[in-house]
Amino acid sequence: MLRQVYYDAFIRAKEYDKDWVAWRKLSASQKKEGKMPRKDLDLDCLLEILKDEREITCHSYRQSEINMLMQVADSMGFTLNTFTHILEGYKVAEKIKAHGAGASTFSDWWAYKYEVNDAIPHNGALLNDMGIVTAFNSDDAEMARRLNQEAAKAVKYGGASEEDAWKFITLNPAKLLHIEDKTGSLKKGKDADLVLWSGHPMSVYSVVEQTYVDGRLYYSLSLDRENRLRNAKERNRLTQKMLSEKKAGKKTQKIKKERSFIFHCDDESYSF
């Protein structure tokens, strides 16, 4: 149903462009007499899309809306970079392939909104089989740290090969983000962004032993163990110090509670 909204926007952007092109063609004296078109930041942005200067990532669930936006894009002459979530993507996979967009989907989420009733955990594998560049996204602060287990779900449900499933969280998202020349796979010349796993990287039984970012050791399981002990000791020392000062009759202050909050895409109303 949103089709007209998109068309309205892009048609306005095209006409806006026309006005500016015409304006720029005018001579200095003509400009003096004429009226400069109004600068519009929204339309500038849409124009960048039409001129392939700006990539589009589109939140999407149902096949109808996916289908519609691709039609809008095709008729307006631009290509969508990535459909995110794209839960019913498997229903229009051949169309997505023809259009040339990539897909970043959930591994197995469904049944949280009415429009995701037909979301299936086989989606990623089906899209991948169609030849679409496919990734898994997490959309969740906890799950983000277990993306390796999420990748395994493409094998379990959709029958993807282990190598393909692993690309869902490495090379393929790098491609969608246009950084595959720097990262996303272990290849001579790419950035040294590496992870050392204790076992099969997609197994729930494996843990990360080391990570490297740009060749620097960023995390180490054994170092982390030492640091935890050190921090616990230091914490205890500070607590004891405060307690003894209190005992000695020194001035105390109330505990200041720190608020922490995990932001979500619909948390725009949060106030600090």
């Binding site: 989420w109 969740d140 729930v204 494996s206 843990v207």
Partner: peptide, 21 residues
């Protein structure tokens, strides 16, 4: 917790995770 019904199929994998720990 969040998405607990459709996510309940992951119960065996939470048990599996405790093996890594």
């Amino acid at each position: 917790g969040d998405m607990e019904r459709m996510g309940a199929r992951n119960l065996p994998f939470t048990a599996g995770t405790s093996v890594a720990y």
